[in-house]
Design a protein around this nucleic acid. Structure first.
Lengths: 121, 121
DNA sequence: CTTTTCACTTACAAAAAGGTAGGTACTTGT
DNA sequence: ACAAGTACCTACCTTTTTGTAAGTGAAAAG
C-alpha cells in the first residue's frame, strides 16, 4: 500500500473536487438537498451517467449523503454532509473570484477557441 | 462567436485553473518567481511538455508573465501577475481546507484505489 | 570538435474523462 | 394491455488530457 501524499493542500482538495462536474454538483447542493432528477435538471448539460458517477465518488469521499426513501417509483435525495459544507465554504472565495472576473475569463477563453479554430481550419 | 457563459463563479475559476497541474504551478510561483528548470524540479512529477503547455495557457489567461532574458544558454523566468496573485489568494482557503483534511482525503483515496485494484485483478 | 546547458518543440502513444443509447424494475394512470 | 415516470446500470465509442522519447539551436567549456 503506497501512502498517498500531497505536496500542498490544493492538490488534496482537487483530488476530491476536480473534474468538470463536481463543483457544479456541489454548488447545486450547497443551499438545498435535491432529488436525482432535480439535480439532473439543475446541473445543465450533465448526462445521467456522469451525474451518478460523480455522486458516487462524492459519497465515497464523504461530501454528500444519499437518502433513499425506498418508495416506488424510486425517490432518492442527495445532500451535503458537514464535510461537504466545509468544502463549499472553502470554495466560496474562489467562487467569488470567478464571479468577479467571469467576463474577463470568458473573453480570453473565447479568443483561445477562435485561435484554435483558425489553426485547425 | 458563441458567448461563453458560466453558471457560477466556480465554473469560471475552474476554466482557468482546472486540470492536474495548474494549481501546483500556481502554488510554486505564489511566493517567488522561478526559472523554467526550477519549476520543473519544484513541481514534482511534471513533464516538460505539460509544464510549458500549462505555462502558455496560464500566460494567455493572464495569470503568469514570462520574462525572457534573451541570453544563451536561454534564461526565462515566470512570475504571477497581479491577476494571478488575486487568484492564489482566492485559492488559499481551499488550500487550507485541503491541508486540514489531507489525511482523511488521502486515506479515502487509497481505499478507492485498492478497491479498484481488487476489481481489475 | 565534441559535449554540456537550457528552454523549448514535435510526433506519437497511452490513459482518463466524457458522451450515447439502450435496458432494468416496479407501480400508477389510461 | 400499455405507456409513463423514477433512479439507476451497462456496453460501447469519442474526445480530451497526459505522458514519453526524441530532437533543435546557440554558445561556451573541455
Amino acid at each position: 500500500m503506497k501512502r498517498k501524499t500531497y505536496s500542498c493542500g490544493l492538490e488534496a482538495a482537487l483530488d476530491v473536487v476536480g473534474g468538470k462536474w463536481k463543483v457544479l454538483i456541489l454548488w447545486a447542493l450547497h443551499d438545498e438537498r435535491r432529488r436525482f432528477g432535480d439535480l439532473r435538471r439543475t446541473v445543465s448539460g450533465i448526462s445521467e451517467k456522469m451525474l451518478i458517477q460523480n455522486l458516487k465518488e462524492m459519497e465515497a469521499d464523504g461530501i454528500v449523503i444519499r437518502h433513499d426513501f425506498r418508495e416506488i417509483p424510486p425517490r432518492v435525495e442527495y445532500a451535503l454532509t458537514s464535510f461537504g459544507i466545509s468544502l463549499s465554504a472553502a470554495l466560496s472565495p474562489l467562487c467569488e473570484w470567478g464571479q468577479l472576473h467571469m467576463a474577463r475569463i470568458g473573453a480570453v477563453k473565447e479568443e483561445e477557441e477562435e485561435a484554435r479554430g483558425r489553426i485547425e481550419a
